[in-house]
């Protein structure tokens, strides 16, 4: 009995020793890859940060309104955020590469999925950034045009333009990421449809008198203004 136990223990220890001997080099390789990965990711972070500072990316992000959003969310500057993002993506990539070396079945599938997901995430981020830039540009253009045309509520128009473009950009981002595609599509269509229907009902029924008064006022004002001279700039 005693011999059997000793034998089993010996075999178990031998097996463990064989397994360790089998995995140890792989583990060391993984650690080396992770370490090298950290160094490369860190260098990449410095390069990206310098490049973004050189190209005045923070100015662009400020114009796009992204800086304001980040500030409100107590996040670091856009330059710092992008360079940190690059660092983490690169390092996690190297870590997963290292884990892949261990040859653990099941994990490999997730790792390959992660690498396949990276380009989509990059495209989604680019769409989000340019969506924010477009939203900021067109909302500012709408604000300036409305102010110079002396409309009564220029900010509302500007905010509406910003929200519409942002929603459009976000729906595109979700579609690219493949997250809740159908839900987003239905939600987007519902929001736009409901807004239009709401406006039509509000103007056609609820605001009928208001609309009449508004038009009358506009016409009366127009006639009155015709009698006044315009300021001649040239």
């Amino acid at each position: 009995m005693r011999e059997i136990i000793v034998n089993e223990l010996t075999q178990a220890f031998q097996q463990m020793a064989r397994d360790i001997a089998h995995y140890l080099p792989r583990l060391i390789v993984m650690l080396i890859i992770t370490l090298i990965g950290w160094v490369i990711a860190y260098l990449l972070k410095i390069v990206v940060r310098s490049f973004l500072r050189l190209t005045k990316f923070s100015k662009l992000s400020e114009n796009a309104g992204a800086t304001q959003l980040l500030h409100q969310a107590a996040l670091p500057s856009s330059t710092e955020l992008v360079s940190r993002f690059v660092f983490w993506v690169a390092w996690v990539g190297f870590v997963l590469l290292g884990v892949n070396v261990l040859g653990i079945a099941g994990l490999q599938d997730y790792i390959s999925r992660f690498f396949l997901f990276l380009p989509r995430m990059f495209v989604a981020l680019v769409i989000l950034f340019f969506g924010l830039v477009a939203a900021s540009f067109f909302s500012r253009a709408a604000l300036l045009a409305a102010v110079n045309a002396n409309y009564r509520s220029p900010r509302i128009l500007s905010v509406a333009v910003r929200i519409l473009i942002s929603i459009f950009a976000l729906s595109m981002v979700f579609e690219v990421l493949g997250v809740a595609e159908e839900t987003m599509l239905i939600a987007f269509a519902s929001v736009v449809g409901a807004t239009m229907l709401g406006l039509a009902i509000a103007f056609g029924l609820g605001g009928r008198d208001l609309a009449r008064k508004f038009l009358e006022k506009k016409l009366v004002q127009h006639n009155k203004e015709e009698k006044e001279d315009e300021l001649s700039p040239l």
């Binding site: 114009n63 604000l143 300036l144 102010v147 001279d229 300021l231």
Partner: peptide, 25 residues
């Protein structure tokens, strides 16, 4: 010349108030 001065002032004041984020930059 019948220039509406009040309207000019209104357009200036509205511009300064509404364009504040633009003017700030």
């Amino acid at each position: 010349a019948r220039i509406n001065r009040k309207r000019l002032l209104e357009m200036f004041a509205t511009g300064v108030a509404q364009l504040e984020p633009v003017l700030r930059s």
